[in-house]
Write a protein that binds this DNA or RNA. Sequence first.
DNA 1: TTCACGAGGATTGTATACAATCAGGCCATA
DNA 2: TATGGCCTGATTGTATACAATCCTCGTGAA
Lengths: 226, 226
Amino acid sequence: MAVHSRVEKQIVPVRKKAYEHLKTAILSGRLSPKERLTEEHLAETLGVSRTPVREALYKLEAEGLIRPLKTRGFIVSGDSKEEVKELFELRAILEGYALRIISEKITREGLQHLGTFIDKAQAALEANRMGDVFKWNTRFHDYLHELVSDSIRLYRLIVDMRKQVLRHRKVTLQSIEGAQRTLDGHQKILLALRLKDPELCEKTMREHIKLAKEDALLTLLGEHIA
Amino acid sequence: MAVHSRVEKQIVPVRKKAYEHLKTAILSGRLSPKERLTEEHLAETLGVSRTPVREALYKLEAEGLIRPLKTRGFIVSGDSKEEVKELFELRAILEGYALRIISEKITREGLQHLGTFIDKAQAALEANRMGDVFKWNTRFHDYLHELVSDSIRLYRLIVDMRKQVLRHRKVTLQSIEGAQRTLDGHQKILLALRLKDPELCEKTMREHIKLAKEDALLTLLGEHIA
DNA sequence: TTCACGAGGATTGTATACAATCAGGCCATA
DNA sequence: TATGGCCTGATTGTATACAATCCTCGTGAA
């Protein structure tokens, strides 16, 4: 019948649910850097005991999404200019290196996939479907990331950081010019990959992310003014 | 009376003790990748309850020092050739970038300090006091790391990784040639810093760590044969 | 033999209780 | 007004109990 009838009961530990809950709340901005997080209060809110909550908190701390308060409790890490800058710069380094590795082992099909993602994003942009632009751009990056997934540490770092900058990226991509700039960047990346030039790949990716950084910083500034 | 009679009670949470205990056991090789770690067993061994142990385990996992076993429990991450390679390569990237940053803001005194560390290490090497060579080399790197300490994320990543490669480095430095090569590398780094050439700094550091990587891999191979 | 399928022990997940600790305010004293 | 110490509620740290889950291994049927 079904090729795989095993449905894999997929038990989700409370700890994980608490973690995801908090994470999305933070990344979406629903949880601002203003409010203090305490184990007990969160436990009550989520309707669970402190144990899983505290484990979720520790994990978030390890990822840098929240930080311990001197006065006990945590706050979500601010998106101060400095922090956003550092985040993007680290991404530039890590993803630049990743692209270097990728360039050495990507296949013809891989290149084709990437090309498709760009085309779809471009088409979406021209049709003014910004949601889809975002989607295909994300696919583009995700596909790249998968290509380094045997470098476990590198992969984990990249994925972590990427999640953290998500909120900034979303804003950037909402402007037409921003989106077009991003797409141009992706084209350049693809070209560098096609040329199989590791040096160029690293450089291109760094520049691509540097642009994203500047967009994000502008946005940040804008919010400040608004 | 005493200038500072405050002794700072310095309470050390059990969790932290468990964490440190396990960490040193792992880094020193006392805990091999062979044995399985379970919460209960560890708790019993350390004479504490499972709660702090489990928190220590999660932290170690986040740092990549142990990994969950499919069959429940953890094992310490192997030092397979692939893993060591990746570790050093990541270090090369991150510390290379760090040196680039440092080159932009290091002061005259900073350069002098670094020079001193190298001299001391060189002297120790010539007197065949390998322990001291290790010590001064460590100082050299530690000092560099402190210079990036306002880039919190970068700093944390570097420190983490550095701890993980410690066991490999120790072996390398025991050989005279290995130590001399390391020192030469440090000289080059210092030179690059003096020239205030970010590009060169990054490149030099990468190469320095690449050499260390090759040493470590050789050692690893040797152990395999032995 | 090989496979399916429980039984049972080992291990982890979560809740809860209690002890330890800390921040912040209050009061006494100067 | 400033200083220092102590009290108290808030919060975290650790232990423990119990429930849930998973691995293993034996048993029996094909």
